[in-house]
Write a protein that binds this DNA or RNA. Structure first.
Lengths: 154, 154
DNA sequence: GCAGGATAGTTTCATCTGAAACAATTGCAA
DNA sequence: TTGCAATTGTTTCAGATGAAACTATCCTGC
């Protein structure tokens, strides 16, 4: 058909690309808060973050809570066992699972990083007014739901 | 100080985490559009996307336009040269740089993927009304600016 | 009980990744 | 000029990654 054109894909305006760049910029900055100072990686930080509440969880529960794959969690855990950040206790009832808890050392790291991470979040959203922050929250929630739906369906 | 508590960091509500999960969900789904069918990777798709406009660019310009690191672009380019998706012509004036263009084969891939990618974007934003889409656009732009500012400053 | 399948977690393997070192070329300044 | 820093892009190396195979344990139906 004459005059038929490919729709223009302007990468800089393409939502998946923009989200990826924004997320990378932010993750990289946040990672600087703990990578050099505490020598922990992003997966390890996520494990600390979910165990920081004081709850004890299995590796599988950590995976679910952090949206990481089982293999990533497994590797983070083995590093953290070596560096003494967490404690692993094989379950009595079910010896496949093991309960994980932060050690005092792990908790100390959480106590130091959490305020820094929250302070970063505050600084980055400081360019938004309260209504915009609330809207961002709503929009991200809606998009995540739809992204999940589109991820599984064709 | 008695009663002093660490501020609670709820990972599921932490903006950097939410953005990371959303971005990963979306990227993974979009990548499925071209990974299996065309055998190209995310970096290669980004190169195709920016060269798809018809412009010819150097590797450095591609890096800037795609927010990728030089080394990533270099590797994507060498794969694409092998698979015949792009053409590289060393500059006359400056023989360090080389101009890159899509071949017919590369352009054909762009012509097939671009509509699929845009259709995905339409589907994912279909859960938002037009005002929300516009708001999302504004919010992401503001956040990216601030993220960039916080990335460079201490 | 016990065979077959499900579940929790680990390991293997091939690939990807980023930092830093490197090579090639250009521009600038003495 | 000519030497030195800056720019463009590539390669190297060590570690990270994900898919799939694997181990160990548990559960279910017979």
């Amino acid at each position: 058909m004459a005059g038929m054109t490919t729709p223009d894909l302007n990468l800089a305006r393409f939502l998946p690309y923009r989200l990826s760049v924004l997320s990378n910029t932010i993750s990289h900055t946040v990672a600087r808060l703990y990578e050099t100072r505490f020598g922990i990686t992003i997966p390890e930080w996520r494990v600390i973050a979910v165990l920081g509440s004081g709850r004890t969880m299995s590796a599988g529960e950590v995976a679910a809570a952090t949206a990481m794959e089982r293999v990533q969690v497994s590797r983070a855990i083995s590093r953290m066992l070596e560096s003494g950040l967490i404690l692993r206790e094989t379950g009595d009832r079910d010896r496949r699972r093991a309960d994980l808890t932060l050690t005092a050392k792990g908790r100390a790291i959480y106590t130091e990083i959490a305020p820094l991470a929250l302070a970063y979040e505050t600084r980055i959203t400081s360019v938004l007014d309260p209504a915009e922050v609330e809207m961002l929250d709503r929009l991200l929630a809606k998009l995540q739901l739809q992204a999940d739906a589109l991820a599984t369906s064709p």
